[in-house]
Simulated assay, not measured.
Amino acid sequence: MQRKMGIDHTQRRKAGNIGEDAVCGFLVRHGYEIIKRNFTVRGGEIDIIAEKADIIAFVEVKTREHGSLTSAEEAVDPVKQRRIVQTAQAFCKGMLEPVCCRFDVAAVELENGRVKKLRYYVNAFDASMK
């Protein structure tokens, strides 16, 4: 298990939950229905799966403390994108009808345990393998 300097797993999970809760609230306020949180299959996880107007949004949430050395957006690199796409494909296998999907990214910035800023990127990447 990798550890980041100064932040243990429990603190990261707590920060991640704050970020995910904020993004769920944002999505609901914008007319989305939350279908699933933390959908997990072997090799991948999707933080939030939401639906609006017959489009399923697979949302990757990255939460960082204000002043972090790397941005939340940088963390969703091509390797992470491939894992998300593969996990989304596993989710869609169980569907009876074809669906329109997209991949969104939410970057949440915390300060003293509270959401300072939330940036939401619609269709942040596509399913083509880079």
Results as ranks from 00 to 15, higher is better:
Arg29Val: 08
Leu118Trp: 06
Gln11His: 12
Glu73Ile: 12
Ile84Asp: 06
Lys4Phe: 14
Leu110Ile: 00
Ile46Met: 11
Thr70Met: 13
Phe26Met: 08
Gly43Thr: 10
Glu74Tyr: 08
Ile34His: 07
Ile35Pro: 01
Glu33Val: 11
Asn17Ile: 11
Arg13Gly: 09
Met95His: 12
Glu111Phe: 13
Asp77Leu: 07
Asn17Lys: 14
Arg13Glu: 15
Lys130Ile: 09
Ala75Cys: 05
Val23His: 01
Glu111Tyr: 13
Tyr32Ala: 08
Arg13Pro: 06
Leu118Asp: 05
Gln89Lys: 13
Asp8Cys: 13
Ile49Trp: 05
Phe58Gly: 03
Ile84Glu: 08
Glu33Asn: 13
Cys101Lys: 12
Ala50Arg: 06
Asp47Tyr: 03
Ile46Cys: 02
Pro78Arg: 00
Asp47Trp: 00
Ser71Trp: 01
Arg114Tyr: 10
Val23Trp: 06
Arg64Trp: 00
Phe125Lys: 08
Asp8Ile: 04
Leu110Asp: 01
Arg82Ser: 02
Ala22Thr: 07
Glu33Tyr: 04
Glu51Ser: 10
Cys100Tyr: 08
Ile48Lys: 05
Asn123Cys: 08
Ile84Met: 01
Val99Trp: 04
Leu118Asn: 09
Gln86Tyr: 01
Asp77Val: 02
Gly16Ile: 05
Lys36Asp: 10
Thr40Asp: 10
His66Val: 07
Lys4Met: 13
Arg119Tyr: 03
Met129Thr: 13
Thr70Cys: 09
Leu110Arg: 01
Arg82Asp: 11
Val28Asn: 01
Asn38Met: 09
Lys52Gln: 14
Thr10Gly: 13
Arg82Tyr: 10
Val99Pro: 06
Val85Ser: 09
Val23Gln: 03
Ile55Thr: 14
Ser71Cys: 01
Val99Ile: 12
Phe103Leu: 01
Ser128Asn: 12
Pro98Asn: 12
Ala124Arg: 09
Glu73Gln: 10
Asp21Val: 10
Val23Ala: 00
Ser128Met: 12
Ala107Phe: 01
Gly94Ile: 05
Leu96Ile: 09
Gly113Cys: 01
Glu51Asp: 06
Arg3Pro: 03
Glu109Thr: 15
Gly94Ser: 13
Gly19Arg: 00
Gln89Tyr: 11
Lys4Gln: 14
His30Leu: 07
Ser68Gln: 10
Val115Arg: 03
Ala72Tyr: 07
Val41Leu: 00
Phe58His: 02
Met95Thr: 04
Glu73Thr: 04
Thr70Tyr: 08
Ala124Ile: 07
Tyr32Asn: 09
Gly67His: 08
Lys4Glu: 15
Glu51Thr: 04
Phe125Pro: 02
Thr40Met: 14
Gly67Asp: 11
Val76Ser: 02
Cys101Ala: 13
Ala72Gln: 03
Ala124Trp: 00
Gly31Cys: 04
Ala88Arg: 01
Pro98Ser: 09
Asn17Gln: 13
Phe26Ile: 02
Ile46Gly: 02
Gly16Asn: 10
Lys130Pro: 15
Glu20Lys: 15
Leu69Gly: 15
Val115Pro: 02
